[in-house]
Structure formats: structure tokens, C-alpha cells
Design a protein around this nucleic acid. Sequence first.
DNA 1: ATGCCTACCTGGGAGC
DNA 2: TGCTCCCAGGTAGGCA
Length: 297
Amino acid sequence: MPELPEVETVRAGLEEHVVGHEIANVIVHRHRAIRLQEGGERELQGLLQGRTIAGAHRRGKYLWMTLTHEGECEDYALVVHLGMSGQLLIKEADPSSHTHLRVEFQLQSGRNLWFVDQRLFGYVAALPLTPDPYASGYIPAMMTHIGPDLLEEICAGETKHRAAVNRKIRKSNRGIKAILLDQEFVSGIGNIYADEALWRVGMHYARPASRLRAAQVEELLGAATDVLHEALEAGGTSFDELYVDVSGEQGYFERSLAAYGREGDPCERCGRIIVRETYQNRSSYRCPKCQRKPTRG
DNA sequence: ATGCCTACCTGGGAGC
DNA sequence: TGCTCCCAGGTAGGCA
């Protein structure tokens, strides 16, 4: 499942392989994949064809490519969300098809950029840009509610923003994992890295955020940052010249995960057996000893 | 406002 | 062999 590290790997691949290229043609194979484009395929084509991809950007799990037309910057961008099974693949000219090919961007250079997505939770769309509420520059207007991610400078160390996020978290009565997964607080964390971060600090997923001390929240955010960094380093080495690969499978099985998917395995820290439980309709993995259930009162 | 729940999707695997 | 059911989960939107 693409979380921040996987999406960042894709972004870097886009920067290397498609930035500077002009979009010649856009072919939509599955309408659902462009559902955010109100005017449909025609509108997407009209906004993209003849434009040059000028930059590849990311915040959390959201990707967007800025565009230029005859040297002028467009006030919209090509937004991509990979959902849970999305991939962007770079193919040389005249490739054979793919079962889950949803949108095809044919570049003037002869190269093709493919949006492939089995489960269709992902999407692509050309959407307006707006000033970034958190930093300089512009972001897609549809993602102004998304908080900066832990790898952004604004979140690093003892910034004002980091302190504000810490306070905001402790004002909520929700379970701490729900907050980690909520992209409005800090973006980029999904089910896998949330479980890993919680395991690292020995915290139960249902601990009410309002009952945590600032230092505990800080420790958790630090652990999450470490996990993201480590995964990025592990995943960032594995894509070749032609493919911007975000096969979640490949990625996360290679990574050393201490909690996620480890049901029945002994905890690396204490030896107790990792359990899988349902929390808010999602699987959560934890060590029953290191991550004790919160007590009432 | 806050927080929780469900729908959206598809294919792989288990169970029968 | 082939059917049915369950599961994965990011996010939007609906509801209490």
C-alpha cells in the first residue's frame, strides 16, 4: 500500500523521467480513475495536451505535477493519488497493454506514463492550484485540508508548526492511531507505518490523544519520522531506469516490519506474540505486553 | 463541531 | 472445478 515513502519514490522517478517532457495525448481507459475531473475526459485532455511537465511535487501521499504552456506556468496541476493499489509506470513507445491500465499519458518524446490501478481507489485529474497555507508556493486547492508531512521542513525539529500539531493532537479525544491516520494532522502515514510507529514507542492504538503528554506525542511523531525515513531509504533504491515502481507488496515485504503483518510472531523486543485486532474497521497489530490496553480513569 | 461508520473497488485466497 | 465469502485499506461523505 503506497504510503509516504512509496509515493516519494514515485515522485523522484517522475522528476527523473518525465519532467521536461510534453504531454501529447491522454487516453482514459476507465472513467472512474478520473472521477475528480468534473468535465471528464475531454476536459482532462484539453487541460493537459500540449503542456510540458515542469515539476513533480508531493505532500503526504498526494502527488502533483506542475505544467507549463509556451513557457508560462499553468494555474492548475496534474494531481495523482495512488489510493491503495495505484502505480505510475514509465514505458517506452508502443508497449503492450496492461490489465489495470486506467489512464495513459503519451508524451511527445515517445515515452508513455501509465496510471495503473487495480482497485480504483486512486485517481488522476487536472485541478486548480492555490497558495499553500503552510509554506511558500502553490498546492492543489483540493488538498488544502491536508497537513504537512513529517519529512517537510516545516515539521522538522522544534518548529512552530510542530508544536501546533502537538497541541492540536492533544485536544482530540480520539484514539491516537485514528489521529495518525487522519491526514489533517500530519499526512503520509497509513495503516502500516502507524502500527510500526506505535510499536516503537510502546503505545496502544486506542490511547486517547487528549490524555497524552506533549513529550509522548513528540516521541511518537519522532518514531513515525524515523520509520518513514528508514522505509524511504529501503524503498528508494529499488526502481530501475524505466519503471517508477510502487508495488506495495514488493516494498513492504522487503522492509523489516516489527508489528504490521506479524500476527503470531514473537515481539522483537519482549518475545510476546503479536496480535491482530480490529480498530475502526481496520486491522491493527500490536504487542500485548509492550503496547498495553489503556486503563480507564 | 466531533468522532465514528460505511461505501467505494478488485482480485487473491480460503472454504466448501 | 467452481462457487461464495472474506479481506486488504485511503478517503469522502453521511450520520448521530
